[in-house]
């Protein structure tokens, strides 16, 4: 057990699984880096943000594959390899690049098992970074998890901390279905205590990061941290929040969400993805259908506007959910009846 960053936790998960199972391989653009360079160095980058650093050095060219800039072919190759005996972890770098290879994910990997009558197994993990906050603008900042969640056959994981990242990634690698594993790029330097050993966190099981009587907040990825910040402030003002981190959007732990809404009667959903057909919309529909009678106030969503992610810092800050916006939404659901009476 020691303090590890989100980056180290992911690196460690990959390392441990590659040691444990020789079928686990890694591929992606510059996951090692330096090949074909004039200095003759390998492992020069270890991924654009250094997440896979050292893995080429430990596992060599039979296990770690730098790819040309050809997402359609290597993501598809990973799917094909997964269906035929390997357990590839393919890195897509920025999730926005899924535009270049969606067919291989959506029409190929995701569909094999069902289309082939349950005869295929596709133990594929696609890692990608997502999210805004780095001024990376419209093509490098999207939170595309609803896109994957929409596709039957894919599992979608959004870790909210270093501890979560390691356990969920190991689970993803051992899972026999295609898993999209999405890392918020602003979190790589976040640190917390993480066990040195391998451990797994099951999919489809939400984590309650805190419990309170008044409002249920559902949040994903980095938004979990912001929701907890808001809940801290609200607690000092006498408002108790339950914060749910679903961990995976597919499968989704519907029961925990419904149970908590039954207890608190109020729901705020914090979702960094574009608002139309996103997780906030999906969960709102679920709760409206299954827990309508428990609701004491309309559901509130803390979500970005329906625009691309802007570049300038001021606009990006306006765009993103933050703790203050979450706090305001919670107060709004708390005050629902009060304002009505007034």
């Amino acid at each position: 057990m020691s303090k590890k960053s989100f980056r180290q936790a992911i690196n460690e998960a990959l390392r441990l699984e590659m040691r444990r199972d020789p079928r686990v391989i890694l591929m992606g653009e510059d996951v090692a880096g330096g090949q074909g360079g004039s200095a003759g160095t390998v492992d020069a980058w270890g991924g654009v943000l250094g997440v896979t650093k050292g893995l080429y050095t430990e596992f060599g060219p039979e296990r770690v594959f730098d790819t040309p800039i050809t997402e359609a072919s290597y993501i598809g190759a990973a799917a094909g390899a997964a269906a035929t005996g390997l357990r590839p972890v393919a890195e897509l770098m920025f999730v926005d690049f899924v535009g270049c290879c969606l067919d291989q994910i959506m029409n190929q990997a995701a569909k094999f098992r069902y289309m082939f009558g349950g005869k295929a197994r596709t133990p594929l993990v696609i890692r990608a970074m997502f999210g805004a906050g780095f001024n990376a603008a419209a093509q490098h900042s999207q939170a595309l998890y609803p896109l994957f969640t929409h596709i039957p056959g894919l599992k979608v994981v959004i870790p909210s901390s270093p501890y979560e990242a390691k356990g969920l990634l190991i689970e993803a690698i051992r899972d026999d279905d295609p898993v999209i594993f999405l890392e918020h790029k602003v979190m790589y330097d976040d640190e917390e205590e993480v066990p040195d050993e391998a451990y797994t966190i099951p999919f489809g099981e939400a984590n309650l990061t805190r419990e309170g009587d008044d409002v249920t907040i559902v949040a994903f990825g980095r938004m979990v941290k912001l929701a907890n910040e808001a809940a801290d402030r609200l607690e000092r003002q006498g408002i108790g929040c339950t914060v749910i981190d679903p961990r995976t959007t597919s499968p989704l732990d519907r029961d925990t969400i419904l149970d908590c809404v039954a207890d608190t009667g109020r729901l705020v959903i914090v979702d960094e993805s574009s608002p139309r057909c996103n997780m906030a919309a999906d969960i709102s529909a679920l709760v409206a259908e299954e827990a309508f009678d428990a609701l004491k106030a309309p559901i509130r969503r803390v979500i970005p506007p329906h625009t691309p992610v802007p570049f300038a810092s001021v606009l990006e800050a306006l765009y993103l959910p933050d703790a203050a916006k979450i706090e305001a939404a919670v107060k709004a659901v708390m005050n629902h009846n009060v304002t009505e009476a007034a």
Partner: peptide
Amino acid sequence: GYGEATGSSFA
């Protein structure tokens, strides 16, 4: 000669 950190002789 390079795409990021990878040489075109490789890629």
